[in-house]
Simulated assay, not measured.
Amino acid sequence: MILLDNITKCYRTRRTEQYIFENLSFEIPAEHNIAILGSNGAGKSTLFRLIAGSEYPNSGNIVTDKSISWPVALSTGIHAQMTGRENTRFIGRVNGVSDLTEYEKRVVEFAELGDRYDIPVAKYSSGMRSRLAFACSLGIEFDIYLIDEVTAVGDANFKRKAKQALLERSKQANVIMVSHQMSELRQFCDSAIVIHQGELTFYNDLEEGIKQYQALSI
């Protein structure tokens, strides 16, 4: 369960305030693999960051009894001045990994960075950063994985590898996913949340959620 309790989130500029969510209360149900659907600017990425704890609401609280990953496939949590190895061990410690040596071994094998694992991440390509972030996240057994455009991770071979690993992990854990590819959402998800005008609606059936989202887009 993830409970959004009277959440308000807005971004302030010099002239105005842009509200993404205002006094929003909503319970994201457990034991579902959920697709997050909404038009550009609806608040999908903001919702992800709020759930992950990488961004805070202006008011209200987010309550959960689950362990939640940061948004996988983004370089969130990766420090540019640290090496891949240093990032891995730091992330492992922060997330309470008991066997850092074994964890690091899994990350090294999965990320496929070779010798570049020991150079600063600032010198990585965007694809390399994403691969490191993906490997670090998937190497930890979270209850829920936040997946943001998994097709953006690395080259074609790595994308296939990442998808297969995520499918295996989703048998024991749950995923909440953002993707513009309906085929990808159908591969991973069984239900949907549609974001529209600051409101969230849960659909127990994925196809019904997609249908409602597409109707809003017409």
Rank of each mutant, 00 (worst) to 15 (best):
L167M: 13
I28G: 07
G127M: 08
T46V: 05
L167N: 05
I218T: 10
E31I: 11
N95M: 12
R14F: 09
L74Q: 15
I78R: 01
S59C: 03
T8Y: 03
D5F: 10
A52H: 02
R116A: 06
D65C: 11
V72F: 00
G41Y: 13
T64S: 05
K123V: 11
I144V: 09
F202E: 00
R186W: 13
L167I: 14
S179G: 12
L113V: 06
R93A: 05
A162Q: 04
G96M: 14
H79W: 08
E86G: 07
G41I: 13
T8S: 09
E55Q: 06
V94H: 05
K105D: 05
M128C: 11
Y11S: 07
R131E: 04
D148L: 13
L132I: 11
L166D: 00
I28S: 01
E141A: 08
R169M: 06
S125A: 15
A152E: 07
K163W: 07
A111H: 00
F90L: 11
V150P: 08
F202G: 05
A173R: 04
L37E: 02
I140V: 08
M1Q: 12
F21R: 15
Q197N: 14
Q81V: 13
A122D: 14
E86L: 04
Y103V: 13
M128V: 09
R106P: 09
N95Y: 12
H180L: 12
G114A: 04
G41K: 02
Y203S: 15
E199A: 11
S217V: 15
Q81G: 09
Y56W: 03
E199W: 01
T151F: 12
S170W: 00
C136N: 07
V153I: 14
D148R: 15
A52Y: 01
S39V: 15
Q181N: 11
Y19F: 13
S170R: 04
P29H: 12
I51L: 08
F188I: 07
M182Y: 08
I195N: 05
G41C: 12
R14H: 15
I62D: 03
N174G: 06
I2A: 13
M128Q: 09
N33G: 15
V63T: 13
G114R: 01
F142T: 02
S179V: 15
E109Q: 06
I28D: 00
H196I: 14
A156R: 05
K66H: 01
G198D: 05
G92Q: 11
E27N: 13
V178K: 01
N174D: 03
L100T: 07
N6S: 08
N33L: 06
K66D: 04
T13L: 15
L138K: 01
D118T: 12
N6R: 05
H196M: 06
D118A: 13
A173Y: 00
A35I: 02
L50C: 03
Y11L: 07
K105H: 13
T201I: 14
L24E: 01
A152Q: 10
R85T: 15
G139R: 01
E149K: 06
V108H: 09
I210Q: 06
I193D: 01
A215Y: 06
Y124G: 05
F158G: 08
D118F: 13
P71N: 05
S130M: 09
A73W: 00
S170I: 02
L185D: 00
K163N: 07
K123Q: 04
L185P: 00
A165D: 10
G92T: 03
I20A: 07
V72R: 00
S45Y: 01
